[in-house]
Computed example of a mutant assay.
Amino acid sequence: MSEIKHSYVRSNGIELHVAEMGEGFPVVMCHGFPEMWYSWRHQMKALAEAGFRAIAPDQRGYGDSSCPQPIEAYTQRKLVGDIVGMLDALNLGKCVIVGHDWGGMVAWNAAMMAPDSVERVIGVNTPFIPRSPMKPTDAMRAMTAGGFHYILYFQTPGVAEAELERDVERSLRAFYQDPVNIDPAEVRKAPPGVFGQAGGGLLDRFSDRPYGKFLTEQDFQRFVQAFKKSGFRGGLNWYRCIDRNWEESLGQVDRVEQPALMITAELDVVLRPEMAEGMNKWVPNLRKTVLVKGSGHWTQQEKPAEVNAAIIEFLSDMKK
């Protein structure tokens, strides 16, 4: 990984750690929870070799970037502002923006909130989701019917932090699992994000199995050391802003005009492939939806060859 350059930039009132590789049109990659820039290591190399400038920040609250404590510091407006400020600090105009998991929300919102900064947009697992008529946490409570919804569990400051930080290695092993090949019809019986009956914590829902085969021990330890340093509060605060994001998006047009690519994962039990169906209603220039077979949630790490091929094909007419 010695070819990757690391720097720190001031953006939107905080400091962002930025990893870069290659030259050419900038492709900014936004990670999800609980991850960091390193989640994009496979894509950075492939994009650099294809003639692009791959840029992967630790987003606010993660890795070596600033980790503000207030919940309200993690709204989508703040997170999009971080990306725009980073582009300004790097003396860049437009970029292609790619996002996975929560990073996908940043990517779609950046396309709407800062259209002059976004040439194209790519969602990985995270589809474009229009504004709901109901406050998100109210909708989740109605959906759970008394079950355990991990996002609702994350809402109370300090509770999930205490559980996840007690043993960082154990927590990350629980998250970074290979997919379980479950019949999609069985998965659909429970609403997304609902893991069993109410009571207890999140890790009670997962057996303490080894981390997924898509990680080497060295890879796994990179994540472990990062979260031992940063803790989980920053990442959890993203979830605690979902109602604020909903309130702030009132009046915002739910429409992404830029050319777009959607990459879905066959075995992601939370961001299910069918959630991307009908997306072209709000993303009229959606050029293609790619289903990555055999992949769970950590798609760009589990199936890097397939993800790289889809991204580079989508960007092929932008090469030098």
Results as ranks from 00 to 15, higher is better:
R272Q: 01
L203C: 11
T144W: 02
A54N: 06
G296R: 07
M112S: 08
M140T: 13
V18I: 15
T144G: 02
T299G: 10
L250F: 12
H6E: 07
Y176E: 02
E49N: 14
L315F: 03
S207E: 15
E23R: 14
N181R: 09
G200R: 09
I312H: 11
A89K: 08
F314T: 05
L236Y: 10
E49T: 14
Q301R: 13
M143S: 07
M318R: 12
R188S: 13
N237P: 10
N285E: 07
G296D: 04
V118Y: 00
A190L: 12
F223P: 02
V96C: 00
V224E: 05
Y153I: 03
G235Y: 05
G85V: 07
Q221G: 04
A48T: 10
R141Y: 01
V187A: 09
A145Y: 06
W37F: 06
G103D: 06
Q225E: 03
F148M: 00
Q177W: 03
L286N: 03
M1L: 10
R244M: 15
L172E: 09
I71D: 06
F227N: 05
A110S: 13
G13L: 11
N245C: 06
A19R: 12
A107L: 04
E247I: 08
N280G: 07
G296P: 04
C241M: 10
R240H: 13
A48V: 10
S230T: 07
M113A: 14
A111V: 03
F154H: 13
V283S: 00
Q197K: 15
T137F: 14
M86R: 06
G251H: 05
E72W: 09
Y8A: 06
A139N: 11
Q258M: 01
S66T: 04
M105A: 13
A111M: 05
P68Q: 08
I14L: 03
S207F: 13
P191Y: 01
Q155L: 13
E266K: 01
P157N: 12
V290E: 00
R244G: 14
